[in-house]
Design a protein around this nucleic acid. Structure first.
Lengths: 222, 222
DNA sequence: CGATAGCTTGAGAGTACTCAAAGTGGGTGG
DNA sequence: CCACCCACTTTGAGTACTCTCAAGCTATCG
């Protein structure tokens, strides 16, 4: 998932794999386990069934960028030629479906899967473009607010009249996703908490007290 | 094109459209002409034949992000559902080939084109991931240096022993592509010029005097 | 209960932004 | 053909934001 400014996450956007002939197996991942590494041969493509994955890239000098978080229904592992171009780790215990990578190259064996992978790739491109806006054109506070808004829309659940959701990733992951620092993320969250927009029952869960104000903050409203 | 940190631009990465049955027509664009708008119905996908295109997105509050520059061989117009998700304008007089958008959805009518579009989408995803590193994890100077390095690799020509290329986009376009400002881009170029890394015969062309130093600057070498 | 990893908070520094003004060059009309 | 105009670029000064470094705090896990 690309946590973006105007993301669209249609229901049932996944691959609907129950009727596909190219499913190879379901893979279970423990918290912290690695699904693949940058540079690994990309024999498979994956759909997240449950749990949450993290895709990262690292520059030679050690600077890290979190490319995306993989939530249920997301496709991860789009290859670059024959290799994976990111690391992929499980933030929580996860299950993924694995497909033969050939399904990407042509639709001979499974046209339905092939077409769906193409649609997933197009969604991915669109979501990444949204994310460009966030990385390039938002202040640190706006980035954090946008991040919370999108997570809320994607995985928030109502509880006592307020939307609530978990942050399975650490502050450093959020920072590396948003192109900022751990301290800046923490300060932004603290400010939102003190101004009453959100509550943080613990450091890994969020309650939206004033979603409208949060959205305005995310949009850079005056 | 996503001007990125480690872009790969294989020769003949285009669609090789001479043998495809789905070519609809060649479209000529004057400088400044618009190929499509964000929100337009996306009936076609395009391959740049010659000239240079600019893909942009704008936030409600007017902040703009240049998503990519389209150079010959690049595919532009990947749809978001049935709509274009960026504006696309010609920076120079350009020619593009147009394909029926159906070629994306399935390979029934033209399997070869369909497969190539999928490969183009995968390249696009990879290039965008590279660009994330640049937007999120590089300083302004590093961004500008990276931009010049990638342009050099893509379109530079040797001249009197030095690599040279044009900048068909204005400083503001470069800034909006890199997530910085016109002034910052200008200052970065001036510093590179004064330190002897580059020469600027005019504001729209660049000569690399010391490509190695420029690359080190782009990589954030100490 | 102590150790450790992650989170928060603070102070200070530096980068990049904003606002402003001057310089440059290409194009058009007189 | 020249002069003006306009858009773009460059340069400067001041400010604000975010980063860095550092220290204290909290929660989790053996």
């Amino acid at each position: 998932m690309y946590v973006t400014t105007q993301s669209v996450h249609p229901q049932n956007a996944g691959l609907g794999t129950h009727d596909c002939r190219s499913v190879h197996r379901t893979i279970s991942l423990a918290k912290g386990a690695r699904l693949f590494c940058e540079g690994d041969s990309a024999d498979r493509v994956y759909e997240v069934q449950n749990g949450i994955l993290r895709l990262t890239r690292v520059l030679e000098n050690g600077r890290r960028q979190v490319i995306a978080f993989g939530y249920p229904g997301d496709i991860v592992g789009f290859p670059h030629f024959d290799c994976h171009n990111t690391d992929c780790d499980a933030l929580t215990p996860s299950k993924v479906l694995s497909f033969n990578r050939k399904a990407l190259d042509n639709g001979d064996t499974d046209p339905a899967l092939h077409a769906r992978l193409m649609q997933a790739a197009l969604r991915e491109i669109n979501a990444m473009q949204d994310h460009f806006m966030m990385l390039g054109r938002k202040s640190a506070t706006e980035k954090v607010a946008s991040f919370l808004c999108v997570l809320s829309a994607r995985v928030g659940v109502m509880n006592n009249g307020y939307t609530q959701f978990d942050l399975p990733m650490c502050r450093g992951d959020i920072a590396d996703f948003l192109g900022t620092t751990t301290e800046t993320v923490s300060r932004a969250l603290t400010r939102m908490r003190k101004s009453g927009m959100i509550a943080l029952p613990n450091s890994n869960s969020v309650i939206l007290r004033n979603p409208r104000a949060l959205q305005d903050l995310a949009d850079g409203a005056e």
